[in-house]
Design a protein around this nucleic acid. Structure first.
Lengths: 178, 178
DNA sequence: CTGATATCCGAGTAATCCAGTCGGAATAGG
DNA sequence: CCTATTCCGACTGGATTACTCGGATATCAG
């Protein structure tokens, strides 16, 4: 349950690739797709990157030797922004859409469940807004570098706008499911 | 994004209804569906409640005057259990399925994104495991009772098994989406 | 025993959404 | 020019969701 679609998966990978090659020449979708093992899906990536561009997360140059770059430093891009751009507002339930609570759901009774979904949504958003693109790059460097140990994420306090508290300190990675 | 299906929605409502009528006679699906505004979907509820029964969250009695009851006190049922029963393990990404991390994903490179999904999953699970069915009932009572103020959820420490820290203290309900 | 009321169960289905394709236009460098 | 690339809308097959249908089984009231 609570799945993220391939848009989210591929889009995040694309952004990580761009962050890795920051500073160099613009990176084409062909290059990205090969580096990320998505050779067959270049045309699909076109769709995804369009959303990222419209959200001002990447910039493009057309024509030969064209491609994409990040429009900001990876430290200044939260994964919340990335995923919202790719998949729309975070809303486990239609009545718990970010910023529109209470507008949509017109149930007369106490609709107790609404608060459940709101809490799930807040848990997700505060987590995503506390992780930057840079965090993912550092993480993968640690994994790739042979013999290196996994580093703990370093969610820096007070990222974008609100969600100041930035709850959710790293829970243990292994949870059993009863 | 990250939607919960109608199985989750209806199933949770069903459980709340059962919790509200705990102590009385067994409650039939017809009664429940009318109380919850799901008149037209009784047959669909049959499917959902089957999962809840198999997960030992409800008990049934057949025949006339039959119906369902909670098999435990509402305080002892976490919403994590309920939703897992209804929708399967919590896994924003296939490679981040609860309890099976690393088994499925066979990417050679550092697959940095895996850790992102794992953190999202942990945020969701620790939130859901910290909210009991009873919490939802209390919440809706507060809403329904005219003039009453909303109460803060009281996530009691150390519910099921691990997830001890139970991060994510209630973030402010209104987050803007850039 | 009979009839009404339930749960129980597997199969079928209509609609929606996802994931990806296709064809082609516009742009830029060589 | 030619080639490489982004850009764009429309289309489509498959998977998933959200149900429906038909009937078997169990229980109680009269």
């Amino acid at each position: 349950m609570l799945r993220v679609s391939t848009r989210g998966e591929y889009g995040v990978r694309l952004m990580v690739d761009l962050a890795r090659h920051r500073g160099g020449p613009a990176r084409s979708l062909t290059e990205i797709s090969q580096a990320e093992g998505l050779e067959l899906k270049v045309q699909y990536l076109e769709q995804l990157v369009k959303c990222l561009r419209e959200a001002r997360l990447v910039e493009s140059t057309r024509g030969a030797h064209g491609g994409y770059r990040l429009s900001r430093a990876p430290e200044a891009i939260s994964m919340g922004e990335v995923l919202r751009a790719l998949e729309g507002p975070i809303a486990p339930m239609i009545c718990a859409t970010e910023g529109e609570m209470g507008v949509i759901c017109d149930r007369l009774d106490g609709c107790s469940t609404k608060y459940l979904w709101a809490r799930v949504r807040d848990a997700v958003t505060s987590t995503l807004d506390a992780i930057s693109l840079q965090d993912l790059v550092l993480e993968s460097d640690a994994v790739t570098r042979p013999g290196a140990q996994l580093v703990q994420f370093t969610p820096r306090a007070g990222r974008t706008a609100s969600a100041a508290g930035a709850g959710a300190q790293a829970a243990p990675a292994s949870l059993d499911h009863p």
